[in-house]
């Protein structure tokens, strides 16, 4: 950089402006190209060329941008190709970005209805749906931003009190509220981030896969699971994943027949 500054006769501020503008314009171009690939994929899908549509969607993903619509449409293309596991996988990915989308819920329901496995689910704690909905709606980042705003506000009020030496009771109450809210949202943000990371899920992509007692091919088999079943990941070991079924039963699966969500 210094060499550039020394060699060029352009003003130093102009160099900085260019250095800031270039990444921004590059990012905009990438986003625009992603959108174009997405539209081209939709056009191929519309004429039934699902494989080509998927190739374009994947290329769009490679640009580093995601959207709920992109995941949803990938799920549609896989569904039309009878790849039920992949369809459910991308519908679930889309659900993270579009938690309230009716069309997405409909498609996911249609895809789930075609799976062979139907395990009863364990009872869900009362707080779990509320928490899940909050995390789906705001996300860890949203919670963090809200918490950060309260946090900065509390810092500002403290600094104000320090500088001005004010003993105003409203200032004190406001500061206490911002501290409480900021703390709650920041803790929730970290909790959401941890749980989202730790709560990995996989979907079975193979037509059939055997659930075993241990992470070895010759471990006793427990069940035969089928394509499209979504499972919670408890642990991983080499090419094996320990999963929990919706009914709470656990076992090991070969990771080759699964896809992360």
């Amino acid at each position: 950089m210094r060499m550039v500054l020394e060699m060029c006769t352009v003003p130093r501020w102009l160099v900085w402006v260019i250095l800031i503008i270039i990444p921004v314009t590059e990012g905009l171009a990438q986003a625009q190209e992603t959108a174009q690939l997405f539209e081209q994929g939709n056009e191929r899908y519309a004429i039934g060329a699902y494989s080509e549509a998927l190739a374009l969607y994947r290329e769009a993903l490679a640009h580093g941008y995601v959207s709920g619509a992109l995941y949803h449409n990938m799920g549609n293309a896989y569904f039309r190709q009878d790849s039920l596991g992949q369809a459910i996988r991308y519908y679930e990915k889309a659900l993270r970005l579009l938690p309230d989308n009716v069309q997405l819920h409909h498609n996911l329901q249609i895809a789930r209805a075609r799976t062979r496995d139907n395990f009863p689910s364990l009872p869900v704690p009362v707080w779990k749906p509320w928490w899940t909905r909050t995390v789906l709606t705001l996300g860890a980042l949203g919670l963090f931003v809200i918490g950060l705003l309260f946090y900065v506000a509390s810092i500002g009020l403290t600094a104000y009190r320090l500088r001005k030496g004010s003993r105003n009771p409203w200032l004190r109450r406001s500061r206490a509220l911002t501290v409480v809210f900021g703390g709650v949202f920041l803790v929730a943000a970290f909790a959401a981030s941890f749980t989202t990371t730790a709560q990995n899920r996989v979907v079975i992509l193979a037509e059939e896969i055997t659930l075993r007692e241990g992470p070895e091919p010759d471990a006793p088999s427990l069940l035969t699971l089928h394509e499209g079943l979504v499972l919670d990941v408890l642990d991983t070991e080499a090419t094996w994943v320990e999963v929990r079924l919706p009914n709470g039963e656990t076992g090991w699966l070969s990771a080759e027949g699964t896809g992360e969500i």
């Binding site: 959207s67 709920g68 449409n73 980042l141 981030s193």
Partner: peptide
């Protein structure tokens, strides 16, 4: 299909990391 929605930068790194 769904029309194009909001594009987000893909964030593989979780918040706490």
């Amino acid at each position: 299909l769904m029309p194009a929605g909001n594009w987000r930068v893909y964030r593989p790194t979780p918040l706490h990391q």
